[in-house]
Amino acid sequence: MNRLVCVVGPTATGKSDLGLDLAEALGGEVVNADAMQLYRGMDIGTAKLPVAGRRGIPHHQLDVLEVTEAASVAAYQRAARAVVEQLLATGRTPVLVGGSGLYVQAVVDELEFPGTDPAIRGRWEAELATVGAPALHQRLAEVDPAAAQHVLPSNGRRIVRALEVVELTGRPFRATLPGQRTPRYDAVLVGVDRDTAELDRRVERRVELMMAAGLVEETRVLLDRGLREGRTASRALGYQQVVAALDGSGELAAAAEETVRATRRFVRRQRSWFRRDPRIHWLDGADPELSVRARRLVA
């Protein structure tokens, strides 16, 4: 019987190619789980596979948002699960591929994402602007001490969201966060990682290739389409650094160097997230038998 297959791990380890190999071998289709690949036009900076490189395999949850729209894990969860369940129902194998940990878990596990109330959020945002993040963090500590321990006193956006959820649901914010993993599907999770020094080199090379391929020009086009106004898209690695250079010093070489540093930090956060999940079967992305080993795991 077909089942959900997930290919996860840090950036630049080789997930996309392995996802294609598995989809091809299993008669499956790829479901994107990279938050920034949801955006139209963000191609070079997200290492999005071009259509010609997809081997004729259908890809889902790519190019579904404009850069001015905010990405929502809850909306992604609904859309991605609908694709997964439709593929399973028709005998196709969904291959979920990506390095956005919460997006992967939102599909694989039973996670709840409370909605939002503009009036409640607006009220807390106004209070944040008036009293500042540390004072608002004290309010959070009063109503939800456990949440306050996990939200930095400087993270105003997260504090506002926590207070909104508490008021909206009447339950602690921590109750709605990823914790105990309750699987939704019979899934097999394949993790791809590499030696840290090698991965650092691959990240540097990837950024070099992105700059050579036209990341700056792509960013300029996206700025014309409203990239600065996009709450989520404007924070994407590479684009964020190029925009800062275009708006300031114009030092694009420095922007590339900062992108390398930021991506390496991001890789370590991804590794930390995924390594906490004991269900993931880890493989070495440098192994020439990677695809064969992954197929055996799935089988």
Rank of each mutant, 00 (worst) to 15 (best):
V8Y: 01
G9W: 00
G9N: 03
P10Y: 05
P10L: 05
T11E: 01
T13W: 02
T13P: 02
T13E: 00
K15M: 06
S16D: 11
D17Y: 06
D17M: 15
L18P: 11
G19R: 03
D21W: 14
D21A: 15
L22S: 07
E24A: 12
E24Q: 14
A25Q: 13
G27Y: 03
G27L: 07
G28R: 01
A33I: 03
D34A: 06
D34E: 11
Y39V: 02
Y39F: 15
Y39N: 04
D43S: 10
D43V: 10
D43P: 06
D43M: 11
I44Y: 04
I44S: 14
T46C: 07
K48H: 13
P50N: 04
P50G: 12
V51K: 15
G53Q: 12
R55H: 09
R55E: 13
R55F: 15
G56T: 14
G56Q: 13
G56D: 12
I57R: 15
I57S: 11
I57L: 15
H59K: 13
Q61Y: 12
L62D: 11
D63Y: 11
L65C: 14
L65N: 02
L65M: 12
V67G: 02
V67Q: 09
V67T: 06
V67P: 04
E69P: 09
A70L: 15
A70W: 10
A71N: 07
A71H: 12
A71C: 01
S72Y: 07
V73Q: 08
A74G: 14
A74C: 00
A75H: 01
Y76S: 01
Q77D: 09
Q77K: 07
Q77P: 06
A79T: 09
A80D: 07
R81Q: 12
E85R: 08
Q86S: 15
L87R: 08
L88E: 10
A89C: 03
A89H: 11
G91A: 09
G91I: 02
R92C: 08
P94T: 04
P94I: 05
V95Q: 10
V95D: 04
L96V: 02
V97M: 02
V97F: 02
G99A: 05
G99E: 10
G101N: 01
V104I: 05
Q105K: 04
Q105F: 08
A106R: 05
A106I: 00
V107A: 01
V107Y: 03
V108H: 00
L111N: 01
E112K: 06
E112S: 09
F113K: 05
P114E: 02
P114K: 00
P114Y: 03
P114S: 00
P114H: 04
G115Q: 03
G115P: 07
T116C: 13
P118A: 13
